[in-house]
Nucleic acid binder design. Structure first.
Lengths: 349, 349
DNA sequence: GTTAGCACTCCCAAACGTTGAGTGCTAACA
DNA sequence: TGTTAGCACTCAACGTTTGGGAGTGCTAAC
């Protein structure tokens, strides 16, 4: 039996009114307020009866006897799933910001996080795309000086990684050229699974005295494809926005929340969850206890996946109070996604 | 007339006791406490008289009549300059952490910030080294696919920067090789001032049809040497530590402080100040209003400059309450500096 | 110069009363 | 049967009062 079946139209209207008012004020909503707010023209007494029913059904609750009602998690969920309709939300500045040539993905991500935080007045997080199952596109070894070799690795999606490795055996220009050719011929276009022992041992034979270099390079290639740069690439912005919402800004809660935003590995859990239980549209809403991170049980989190061409995917998240403006957040995210999409597609110069 | 002259030995002992106690408890210190604490064997009444003098001289103050005394900014300053002697402080984990091959400066910095925050229980910030006036060490152009050229630029100090640029004119392997040779011959070892119009125009002539590529590359080189990656490379950690100190953790203050830590451009002001008014040892202490950032007037900030070989310098900062454990912080910083120094010097493989 | 003693100040926390918003229930009405 | 007015009741929030405790400044005696 779906939620809809339990509620007649009037109950829905009232629930909607309660939640909307609560989203704005953050204060428990009383029957008189609703009686005047809606165009149902019902007295507060009638509303009280209905509210009593709604409470019994679990959509709203009282913080204490003789206070107004606030939405329960279930109430929010119903609102998000059934009632809400998105606004058309302008994402200010986004075009300007993105069109301004950004050559490092990192920078783009930081800017996006900032943008989102500013637009929504909530905290924003964004994870760098994960290059899982990507192919190697290009390798280049260069001699920077007599002792060091610069390794540049380009993975499909134009993710670039460089490392310095020390030279132990003598290596002249010709040897270097050969190594470069060897590496590129052997490895280009392969995924990490395809670089197996057979490929590796054949390369080592061909590399002869420089097989130690090959070894080192392979380690780096593996790291590059896996994308494990040791630190989880997650950027956050607007953490201080949570101070705007009294229900989150007492010392205890604020500390934990901001701590979570600072400690990126906790956010990783969130992202993993998003990716594992992904829904159709790619946008998900976690309300209260639904969140996979315990420290955020007093919040709501809205996440979306973005695509950076060539199958690179990352996650964006907005973290705010349960009474966040879901309509605004959802439409802002959707809007951002499409804008990002078109611009990035065009940007494939 | 120096501070010392105003104070006899007993006053210094008492001042020291007051400050030390306050550093631990964060509560105003009364005369009776001091009377028992010190080995002066004086009654509280006597202490009261001395405290009255100390207050008149501006070293301590009362939050209100009939409360104990707390140190004034001047008191802290006196403590830091005159009384304090550093502890030998172990920086746990530092060796392990740094010895673990870290190939990207960025990562190293993040780890150091984290380390400092954990060790001190204050907030830590660290700025990436600024490459001002550095020389170009190496350039490499490679053809990644038919439409894109990968530019890798290495600046002295082994800072690596890469960009993709589009190819407009036909470019075969031989042309690419020539371009590479041309660029390296013309530019290597030059600082940004030395790359003048003469050098540029000569290169363009030699580059012939590919002078647009040269143009693009030069832009990137300039950016790389200047190190202006648009975003200020400042990392912070342990912002939530400030919640451990009640005098900083009320909503208003906490929000502003964390906001400042989040908004890196404000921190830049701090760093600039450090660099302009640098003292001998390289370690500086800002107490309260001395801080160049207004939002930190309730804090103390301890900064130090580190050197990453080849003249690359950056700044580390610890931000905490005025009653921070100066001895610990100073010695931790000094310790970190030397360890960092030796390890980095050795690490120049 | 040092100390004991005392009156005084002021913060803090608990106790108390008041207020007002909001509820649940009942009885009357259409 | 659904709606409404009315009323008693509840409870958080707020302001006031009160007592206690920590700490001071001053005075007088040692």
């Amino acid at each position: 039996m779906s939620d809809r079946d339990q509620l007649d139209e009037r109950k829905v209207t009232i629930l909607k009114a309660i939640i909307k008012t609560y989203l704005e004020t953050g204060e428990p909503v009383g029957s008189r307020t609703i009686s005047k707010y809606t165009d149902l023209h019902l007295s507060s007494a009638t509303i009280r009866n209905e509210m009593s029913d709604l409470e019994e059904l679990g959509y709203i609750m009282q913080p204490h006897t003789s206070a107004g009602r606030i939405p329960s998690d279930r109430g929010y969920r119903f609102y998000v799933d059934q009632i809400m309709q998105e606004k058309e939300e302008e994402v200010t500045e986004i075009k300007d910001m993105i069109l301004k040539r950004v050559d490092r993905v990192e920078l783009l991500l930081k800017q996006m996080a900032k943008l989102l935080a500013q637009n929504t007045n909530y905290a924003a997080m964004i994870s760098a795309p994960q290059y899982h199952q990507n192919k190697l596109k290009f390798i280049q070894l260069s001699k920077v000086d007599d002792e060091k070799l610069l390794v540049v690795i380009v993975v499909e999606g134009n993710i670039i990684k460089n490392t310095m490795i020390p030279i132990h055996t003598e290596l002249d220009d010709e040897g270097l050229l050969n190594l470069n050719i060897l590496l590129n011929n052997a490895l280009n276009g392969l995924t990490i699974e395809e670089i197996n022992l057979e490929v590796i041992s054949r390369m080592k034979v061909q590399a002869g005295p420089h097989c130690d270099v090959v070894d080192r390079v392979l380690t780096e290639v593996a790291a590059a494809i896996r994308g494990d740069d040791e630190d989880l690439q997650i950027y956050t912005s607007g953490a201080t926005n949570i101070f705007k919402y009294p229900e989150l800004s007492d010392g205890e809660r604020a500390s934990k929340l901001i701590g979570t935003l600072e400690q990126k590995d906790l956010l990783q859990g969130l992202i993993d969850d998003v990716n594992s239980s992904e829904s159709g549209s790619g946008i998900q809403v976690y309300i209260g206890d639904e969140a996979p991170v315990k420290t955020m049980k007093d919040c709501s989190i809205v996440t979306a996946n973005y695509e950076l061409g060539e199958g690179l995917r990352g996650t964006i998240g907005i973290i705010g109070p349960k009474r966040m403006d879901y309509e605004k957040v959802l439409s802002t995210l959707r809007n951002l996604m499409t804008q990002l999409d078109t611009i990035l597609k065009k940007d494939e110069r």
